[in-house]
Simulated assay, not measured.
Amino acid sequence: MSIRRAAVAGAVGLAAAGAAGAGLAHRRRVLARREDEPGPAFGSLRSKGRTVVADDGTPLYVEVDEPEVPTRLTLVFCHGYALSLDCWHFQREHYRARGIRAVYYDQRSHGRSGRSPMGNATIDHLGADLMTILDAVAPEDPVVLVGHSMGGMTIVALAEQHPELFGDRVVGTALIATTAGGLDPSRILFPMVPTWAGSGAVHRSVAALARGHRAVDRLRRLGRDVALVATEQLAFGDDVPQSYVAFVDRMLAATPFEVVAEFFPGFSTLDKFDHVEPLAKVPTAVICGTDDKLTSIGHSRKLASRIIGSTLLECHGAGHMVLLERPDEVNGELDRLLGTTGAVDER
């Protein structure tokens, strides 16, 4: 039997065994009872899209919220692994109401952006993409960069590649539920693969599964209840409405497993704590949930300790998707950060 067939066959058996568990059924019922009526209209906040072409030809999908009264400052939001620009729903709602220019884009191979060439699905390429986007949509404006998870790693990569930007065009940064290294990648991957896989199994089988990615994607669709419960338990800390969990799960499910596998190796080799120093030149906010199971609070504390002058907001009980789970706290900290830059037009 080929590696591909063996991996997929094993996945089928293990997925079936996991789905049969009584604990899964119980947790699914608990989650269903938490439905909000009506829930937020996730994915409904849109502006006219445009394409920015990366240096290797990858088309990047970008949306810019232009306020009625132009502002000096531009906010740029960088989303995380296997998510999309829609994950910033509550932040987008907030900054539209405040009338601040904001840029949202899909990372390469995610959302509406084009697929990365083989071998270019790396954190360093994401950093270069961010530079390309800044040049295209905010070539002169002062900018504040906001990154969640892999988006925070993107900002750190940009700081390594272009430290001269910080204190010049970049006037502030926010790093949310992220790290600059020392990550166990199976923690990030776990909610995005069929949930029969444990940490060791992920490390051993992700490359083999990538060869059978179409079959894996079919299994993910078939095992929706399993995936939904895994997303709820691993992406959130406190109890949240089912619509929040379903929204995150839709973004994860929309990311082909081949893409998940292409980015996977880069997380284990990420080692950029020695390159965060440029962020100390500007006001920097580090934000994390204390119950983050993917990039644990220790990563944020280490970032804050290495970025002199930064602030650390720990949202008690919140998980990795703290930007959805605690939007008032996150938005409040971002507002405080913007106020320290001196670039906000208060009206």
Rank of each mutant, 00 (worst) to 15 (best):
P70C: 04
P38Y: 13
R112P: 01
A54C: 04
P185R: 15
S149W: 11
A174Y: 01
Q242A: 15
K281H: 15
T284M: 10
P38W: 10
M153A: 15
A197V: 07
V248Y: 04
V170N: 09
V62G: 01
T290S: 15
M118N: 09
T269S: 14
D335F: 09
V282N: 05
C78L: 08
L279R: 02
F90Q: 00
P327H: 08
V276H: 06
T74D: 05
R29L: 13
V286N: 00
F236Y: 12
S300H: 06
E160D: 14
L175N: 04
L324K: 03
E35D: 12
L252F: 07
I123V: 15
I155P: 00
T154H: 07
H299G: 05
V193K: 02
Y104C: 01
S296L: 02
C315F: 03
V144M: 11
T295S: 09
E262R: 15
C315I: 12
R72I: 03
F236L: 08
L219K: 05
E63Y: 03
P70K: 04
E232C: 03
G200I: 11
I308L: 11
V146L: 13
L324E: 08
L234I: 08
G39R: 14
G39Q: 10
E140Q: 15
A246W: 11
R211A: 10
H203Y: 10
T255Y: 01
